[in-house]
């Protein structure tokens, strides 16, 4: 922080090294990818020293080469597409089911009383534990995988919506009523926008879980997808492909966050100055 203000003060007196440095830190690309550079360097050095046997650990150069190869053969694009579609379909269903149910449980006293304990329990059972029975029901199919993702998205979303609606300040609801809002308008104009931060964080948590569930499902159900690719490579003892898979997963999450979740939150919650929860890791 302090150095920033120093740099701001009349650029004529600042040496050019400083100026380029500050120009660099302002560039978005550098800011996003720059921090990874020293780390990749360290990774490369460790791999080069041969500290770990190459059957367990490979350097960035090998990983990049493998990545190129997988791209050329088209294996990667196919698997990537499969995984993305699964996650998207699962998330869409999850939203379609979780949003209305979440609002119902949050708003209806009776529904809440009845559904809340069940909700806690089924959330606790966890997505992955469902896989064996799903395989018995639907075989090693897309249905099993989608079911698991929907399951993972739905529960955190519902819990978040309930918490979010409960957190709407009472005065805000009272204000709406004294200004003449009826039930419908309170729902549309106050409850819905008021619960948006919670919905956003619910989607975030849900997708975070869904993402992991997808990988597990692909490993266990295993016909295609990034998770399958990684585990298949592991069975063949090919550590490079496992590394490629993990980096792809990380990058995909970054992209989901940067292109989808963050803009969504910027446009709503942050724009309105509603406090963002410190929250857990994403």
């Amino acid at each position: 922080m302090a150095t920033d203000t120093v740099e701001e003060r009349g650029s004529a007196t600042v040496p050019w090294t400083r100026r380029t440095a500050s120009a660099l830190t302002r560039s978005k690309t550098v800011r996003t990818f720059g921090p990874f550079l020293p780390f990749v360097l360290l990774w490369w050095v460790v791999a080069e020293t041969g500290m770990f046997p190459s059957a367990f650990f490979v350097g960035p150069d090998v990983v990049i080469a493998k990545f190129g190869e997988l791209l050329r053969t088209g294996v990667l694009t196919g698997y990537l597409w499969d995984s993305t579609v699964r996650l998207a379909v699962g998330a869409a269903w999850g939203l379609a089911i979780g949003l209305p149910l979440g609002f119902l449980i949050a708003l209806s006293h009776r529904a809440r009383r009845f559904a809340w304990p069940l909700l806690l329990f089924f959330q606790a059972v966890g997505d992955i534990a469902w896989l064996p029975i799903l395989i018995i029901w639907f075989g090693f199919s897309l249905t099993s995988v989608t079911f698991v993702i929907v399951y993972t998205v739905v529960f955190p979303l519902m819990v978040s919506i309930v918490a979010g609606i409960d957190a709407i300040p009472r005065d805000m609801l009272r204000a709406a009523r004294t200004l003449g809002a009826g039930r419908r308008n309170i729902l549309l104009e106050v409850v819905l926008p008021g619960s948006l931060p919670a919905i956003a964080s619910g989607i975030r948590t849900g997708l975070g879980y869904g993402w992991r569930a997808l990988i597990a499902a692909e490993i266990i159900v295993g016909t295609s997808g990034i998770g399958f690719m990684m585990f298949d490579a592991r069975r063949a003892g090919q550590v490079t492909e496992v590394f490629v898979g993990m980096i792809i997963l990380g990058v995909l999450w970054y992209l989901t966050d940067a292109l989808l979740l963050s803009p969504m939150e910027r446009e709503t919650v942050e724009r309105w100055g509603m406090v963002r929860k410190p929250g857990g890791p994403r």
Partner: peptide
Amino acid sequence: PGPDRGVVFQSFALFPWKTVLGNLTF
């Protein structure tokens, strides 16, 4: 509660997702 008795709150109770105009014309 009803619009014949308007309330001004200590906590303001403005709608953060509405602009000044949106709040005023609610």
